[in-house]
Simulated assay, not measured.
Amino acid sequence: MTLAFTICSVNYLAQARTLGDSLQQTNPDWQFVIGLVDDLKTANLPAHLLPAYSMLEVTTLGIPDFAGMCARYDITELNTAVKPFFIDYFFQSSPRPDSVIYFDPDIIVFQPLTRLTAALETNSLVVTPHTIAPTPDWEMPNEQHHLNTGIFNLGFIGLRNDPTAQQFVDWWQKRLTYECRIDLCEGLFVDQHWVNFAPIYHDNVLIEKHKGYNVAYWNIHERLLAEQDGNWVVKDPEGGDTVPLQFFHYSGYGVQKPGDISKYQTRYTFNQRPDLVPLFQLYHNRLLQNGNDAYRAYPCVYIKPATVLYYTSIRRLLNVPVQKLAEWVS
């Protein structure tokens, strides 16, 4: 059995529902779970905003020092820091899944992921690099940005439920409890830099370079998108093979700014990349249909901005590791 999941707070449930809808259409035999970093009782969502998919609230996991993580992290850091804890929970659940696959909520899956399922029969981990070809200029993002944020994009990771993956997850949990921060000066960008070590520390780690995987603003200089006979495909700008689009990652796209491909990139506009326009119109419409405007009004119950600012300011002033600061404060 394959279990796919995402993680979000209530404000991102439109994205999670859109991901779930795409998985239900393309991979209906998979189990899909929304890991919720929020409190449903506090949110008190009306019935029409409750997703049709299973939701697992983060407090169910029993994460050690979860309260401290809430104090130390902002909403992005917290939602990424709990990722290995959710994976570990699913690894131990019953019925025991053969593999666990994580997708960021702002992803649409376009194909049955048979290639991925086959890869997880022999590989313990499957990860995708941000880019597999040199960036053409110094617009954002370029290779220096990827050095700052990590070689691999952790909006996706596939794990076979085996001892190697379990060893990796155990190690990842320890690192993210205190060091899942956006702090480029200290070489940290949430959960991503840590995974640079995965293919070094462990065997059976597949670095998946298929151009249909995890297509996003950071690699569209390598890939042209087109719809053929009702299916999306990825074309090589240099004239190489055309492959089916497996899943697209709409990172940094917001319904409130529909004219921007991503708030994190400066390389392309939609006028320069008309091939992307229908793909983003599709996503825009699905988010609106799934209640994006309503969900955005709900703040995450676990994030206290003043407390996060306190931790960050004091840590930088004293120049001490976050773990040491947490010990002092407690």
Rank of each mutant, 00 (worst) to 15 (best):
L23H: 00
P97W: 10
V169C: 13
G68A: 08
L288W: 06
F197Y: 14
Q256Y: 11
A294K: 08
A133P: 02
D104M: 02
F85V: 09
L3Y: 14
N271M: 10
G35Y: 11
L176W: 01
N153M: 03
T18Q: 11
L276G: 03
N271R: 14
Q92I: 01
E227G: 06
I108C: 13
H48A: 06
M69E: 06
D275E: 11
I261Y: 10
T164L: 15
P28V: 03
P97Q: 09
F189H: 10
W172C: 09
F248P: 01
L287M: 13
L225G: 04
W138R: 12
Q289V: 09
I303L: 02
L78A: 14
N214M: 07
L36Y: 07
T177Q: 13
D229E: 15
G68V: 04
R296W: 02
Y53E: 15
W172A: 14
A118C: 02
N290K: 11
W138D: 13
T26A: 13
Q166I: 02
E77F: 04
W172G: 10
L159W: 02
T164F: 04
D203T: 13
L282S: 06
G68E: 05
P95T: 11
T312Y: 07
D162Y: 03
C180V: 01
G155H: 03
I207D: 01
G62N: 08
Y201I: 05
Y89N: 06
P134Q: 05
S94N: 14
D236S: 10
T76R: 12
A14P: 11
Q272G: 13
M1K: 11
N153L: 04
G240D: 02
K209A: 13
I132M: 08
Q167S: 15
N204E: 12
L276N: 07
F247G: 02
L325T: 02
D65F: 08
Q144T: 07
N292G: 12
E208F: 07
E139N: 14
A4G: 08
L45C: 11
W232A: 00
L317G: 07
Y311H: 09
A67R: 12
T266F: 07
F32H: 14
L3C: 08
Y53F: 15
I63N: 01
Q192K: 09
A297H: 11
F248G: 00
E238P: 00
Y73L: 09
A294F: 13
A226K: 09
Y264I: 04
L61K: 06
P112I: 06
L23Q: 00
L19D: 03
V127D: 02
T6K: 10
P321V: 01
A67C: 01
R17F: 01
T242A: 10
F66C: 02
F5L: 09
T128S: 15
W232P: 00
R175Q: 13
D137P: 00
K304P: 00
K41V: 08
L40G: 09
F197C: 06
Y302R: 00
W232H: 02
D170K: 14
G150M: 04
P278W: 12
P163M: 06
